[in-house]
Design a protein around this nucleic acid. Structure first.
Lengths: 231, 231
DNA sequence: GAAACCAAATCGTCATACTTTTGGGCTGTG
DNA sequence: CACAGCCCAAAAGTATGACGATTTGGTTTC
């Protein structure tokens, strides 16, 4: 998943710094300065910068340097950008944005999944719903989180829409994030778990309406909880 | 918007070729081969490849080369990837995916816009609804398209959600695409236009439910029409 | 036949030199 | 003093040669 090599190391420094706003919009970096600062060659700096340019975090112009772009042009759907923002200062803004996105997308995905899921997907969802219940009862937050992520990713993938499917990792990052930063009840809510079972059953039964409803309740609930926690 | 310089030129060749499937999954390119084929230096090839790697279209490994990644790991939200796919062989798959995405996102955006739009946004939406009506009546498809794109982008931006806002360009690409490839009625449908006016009014009035409903009707209509055209 | 080893292929990194663009200062003039 | 145009230097863009690192696949050896 990560970009590797020395450019990757550079990226791990610069990306979060820019995404968190530590290096503000309009700031100008010089290639040579980066070479010195990180003790790497021109080649490495240029390739790292090219990648950042691909994400629209920076733009490089002759005679002026590498300027940090305004947030409004960033590729906010890039998985790395999302992760960097989640780890940094505007974590809460990012969580809010993603929360709304989930409310829009996941119910639609659930409805599509009810129509298009493969038998394998349906089996997997049933199994995950059970495991979710068990790990919640055992108060095992780590495996609960793992299964929760898996559940939502499976629904998104089962929708048959490649773009929805791709949001699986992103949703995973959100769930991980809110657990890591203690934005979650320490005990998973029994009601939320019942809803996951409900959604799994609906998808298995091919009931698009019920699947969509259930999922909508889950994600709007998560969003409300988030808004409460963040004020 | 474009990546520039020689790497950009390379990208314009390789990106579409990969995104369209012309260079299939698993294919292996060698850096030196690309140097020869395009008559550029290692530097340029490497930077272009880095960008493609950032989009997860390819992965570069020692001793083996630059391998085209399976479609499932591509950054399908990257604007360039979307454009390349729209221009190439799986245009219809891409249009379908984007259609579903619009159905999920745009109604939610309209609802949020009704709550959060600035006065300026509201004025702009009203104006666009009028201009839309006029250019439709004049059968001026070019300006109609321009205003249509502007309308949807404005709603997405007015939602106040940066991720929704970012989909404005993408939706624009979809609308442009389906016009260019004659996947649209040559005369804009009067009913669809009435709906745009309805949405604009609802957002101006702060009526989230009505805005969401209207927008949902618009985008589901567009999706159905698309499915009909594509069989 | 299996395991260890070696060699070739290819990317990764570095150092350096040259080219191209462009912003800002300098100069000269009205 | 204001303004226009020219010129220069600064920074990114490109090219190239050399070397290092790593993986693969065949070959040798036991």
């Amino acid at each position: 998943m990560e970009i590797q090599g020395l450019p990757g190391r550079l990226l791990d420094e610069l990306g979060p710094a820019i995404a968190s706003g530590e290096i503000p919009e309009g700031a100008v970096l010089r290639g040579e300065e980066l070479e010195d600062r990180f003790g790497v060659s021109r080649t490495v700096v240029r390739e790292a910068v090219r990648i950042l340019e691909g994400m629209r975090l920076v733009a490089s112009r002759r005679r002026v340097g590498i300027t940090v772009q305004p947030k409004s042009v960033w590729d906010v759907f890039d998985p790395l950008v999302i992760r960097w923002r989640l780890a940094g200062a505007d974590r809460s803004a990012q969580l809010r944005s993603l929360g709304s996105l989930r409310v829009a997308v996941e119910p639609a995905a659930a409805a599509l999944a009810a129509a298009h899921a493969s038998d394998d997907d349906r089996r997997r969802l049933s199994a995950l719903a059970v495991e979710l219940t068990m790990s919640a009862r055992a108060a095992d937050l780590t495996t609960f989180l793992r299964h929760d992520i898996d559940f939502h990713a499976t629904v998104l993938r089962a929708s048959g829409n490649e773009m929805f499917a791709h949001l699986g990792d992103t949703v995973g990052a959100v769930l991980t994030g809110r657990t890591e930063y203690h934005l979650m009840p320490h005990q998973p809510e029994p009601y939320a778990i019942r809803l996951h079972r409900e959604v799994a059953e609906a998808i298995c039964a091919g009931d698009a309406v019920r699947a969509e409803q259930g999922m909508r309740t889950i994600v709007t609930g998560a969003l409300e909880e988030l808004n409460q926690q963040l004020g």
